[in-house]
Amino acid sequence: MRTEGLKIKNLSKAMNGLKIVDRVTATFLPGRITALVGPNGAGKTTLFHLITGELKPDMGEIFYRKKKIAGLPPYKVARNGIGRLFQDVRVFENLTVFENVASACYSERSETPWFPFLHIKGLRSFNRDIADRVMFWLEFGGLADLKDTPASSLSYGQQKILAITRIMAAGFSILLLDEPTAGLNPVMIKRVLNILKKIIKEDKSKTIVLVEHNMSVVTEVADWVYFMNEGRISFFGRTDHVLGDQEVREIYLGL
């Protein structure tokens, strides 16, 4: 199982002469929720950008399923099973909740323009299968009642849950969640955390990595923590160990 995780080796990225990510080495294991914490500007989101291909690293490698994925374009990284929740949510605003999730369910092959013409006979059952899958995930996220609502009409919290549901429906094995609870009220935070716990409980092959500033959230769900500061991983270990460390408390929590 250990080799199935996402491994980052010596990853570096500089922008405008500033080292944003500096020789980061980390392993994210399946069946585990790993939190990436650290002050603003520590390079956490940039690290996500590097993994998902939005930025190309200057140096270093990323391994997943024995494949090197550093420098691949984002859509290829996604096709390798790595999905991401953006800090600013990014739902498809003009699409309904149902369509948002459906867009994640289609395979690359079914998204060619000629697909419906080559599968005229099986199209009805294909659409039914997709609709069933979408409904399954909408129930999972608790959004089934809102399925025909345009995503732009949802509250911010609902949009976050929709975005999480969307990457779940896409079947990614690695979920990179950038501040999944930021800007949410306590009720919504609880819903998101329950969803995360449910994901890991039901499917041990999933790997969840989250960037999070809310320490009570980290303590509640994370098994493992990487503490980042000035582009580097300065501590890592079990959640209680890292968050209990005096230096971490000084740098980050100001205690």
Binding site: Y75, A78, E93, S103
Partner: peptide, 25 residues
């Protein structure tokens, strides 16, 4: 009406998010 049409609309609404779902712009 096809998945292709939906993928185009997804790219239109948010290209980065759509690409993150494996759609090649």
């Amino acid at each position: 009406k096809s998945p292709f049409g939906l993928a185009l609309k997804a790219l239109r609404d948010n290209e980065m998010a759509a690409e993150g779902l494996g759609k090649s712009p």
